[in-house]
Design a protein around this nucleic acid. Structure first.
Length: 217
DNA sequence: TGCCAGGCCGGGT
DNA sequence: ACCCGGCATGGC
């Protein structure tokens, strides 16, 4: 079922060319900055970092947290995010000497647990790092995923992160490229057709898959 | 103009 | 175990 949904979305919308970032490190930074935040604001902060040539582990780790705060200000929650990012960078430097390839070469599940143990890295941020920066086969679940799947009645409203992740991965081949494209397509649908307040369900490519009587909320 | 955005943490029941 | 407030900027 969920694989058919993927094919439907891909046929209707085409490839999304995600994640919107150029290097694995930039993707990692973006994953932290985009927590509950509009991507446009994240881009401003990343632009600040790029202008100062700080899009590399050692260089960014060397920036004092107070300076980092100012660079991250446009991304919102800037004090929290400066600490979280610095914290993640310390981990990266201490455990892997800033070598991302080395980090992603380790066991996926072990690495996932390590990331989750860091303050400020929850399941979505960890999985975004693993999939989009590391190319590892982990499905990223986000607010859009939850909303789209629950409105169609495919999952329970109360389903938690891991239930949704297992539900999807259980029906899909273990393919990072597929997980990548699928999540990107869900974000597109979430932004354009499945908004919180003004959903345009009747224009959504999945419209005919809605349950009888319209979407559940 | 208010409401919202690709979460996560910590403290209170 | 659950629930909830806090965190903050910029765009529509």
């Amino acid at each position: 079922m969920m694989h058919d949904v993927y094919r439907r979305l891909f046929d209707a919308l085409g490839p999304q060319y995600w994640w919107p970032g150029e290097t694995p490190f930039e993707i990692i930074v973006g994953a932290v900055l985009t927590q509950n935040t509009n991507w446009q604001n994240v881009e401003k902060a990343i632009r600040n970092l790029r202008e100062d040539d700080l899009l590399a582990p050692a260089a960014l780790h060397a920036v004092p947290v107070e300076e980092l705060e100012e660079l991250l200000r446009p991304a919102g929650y800037f004090r929290v995010k400066a600490r979280r990012l610095h914290n993640l960078l310390a981990f990266l430097m201490e455990q892997y000497n800033g070598d991302l390839d080395a980090m992603f070469a380790s066991n996926v599940n072990a690495l996932r647990e390590e990331l989750l143990s860091l303050n400020g890295i929850g399941p979505e941020t960890a999985d975004s790092i693993l999939l989009y920066a590391g190319g590892l086969p982990v499905f990223v679940v986000d607010a859009y995923t939850h909303r789209i799947l629950s409105r169609h009645g495919w999952i329970d409203m109360e389903a938690d992160y891991h239930q949704i992740q297992d539900f999807l991965q259980g029906q899909l081949p273990d393919d990072p490229a597929l997980f990548n494209e699928y999540h990107a397509l869900l974000v597109y649908v979430g932004k354009h057709y499945c908004r919180k307040r003004s959903p345009k369900c009747d224009e959504c490519p999945l419209h005919d898959l809605l349950p009888e009587g319209g979407p559940g909320l």
